[in-house]
């Protein structure tokens, strides 16, 4: 019973972060801003939902698989965001109109 409540609270936190991420994704117009809000959903909210599922499920093989999925997503989604940001910074010639660029990064 207690386990169910703790798991539901964790999943609820995750869903709240997801809602924030979706709102940001719809509100922002520029890709770097949108990526920032999408990253919240990818790394933080997803981890909370999976940890909630693990707490509800208890310790067994399914939980182990969920932990592996959580670790893999925590590895991949920041790298994915980094690659997207790098692609945008490399290919957009008018980057300085959108955001501040440090002097040593200017090509």
């Amino acid at each position: 019973m207690i386990r169910n409540i703790i798991g539901c609270i964790l999943i609820f936190i995750g869903v709240v972060f997801y809602i924030i991420s979706v709102i940001g994704n719809l509100k922002f117009k520029y890709i770097l801003n949108r990526m920032h809000s999408a990253g919240i959903g990818d790394s933080f909210a997803l981890s909370f939902v999976i940890i909630g599922c693990i707490v509800i499920n208890g310790l067994n093989v399914t939980s182990l698989k969920l932990i592996v999925a959580c670790v893999c997503l925590y590895f991949t989604s920041p790298v994915c965001s980094h690659m997207l940001a790098k692609l945008e910074a490399d290919t957009n010639p008018n980057l300085e109109e959108e955001c501040e660029v440090e002097k040593e990064c200017r090509s």
Binding site: C72, F75, T76, H82, M83, K86
Partner: peptide, 14 residues
């Protein structure tokens, strides 16, 4: 895409 150290390091595990 040029060589990216972050991508290369994380893919060493993945």
């Amino acid at each position: 895409q040029a060589y990216d150290p972050i991508l290369a390091k994380s893919l060493e595990f993945l």
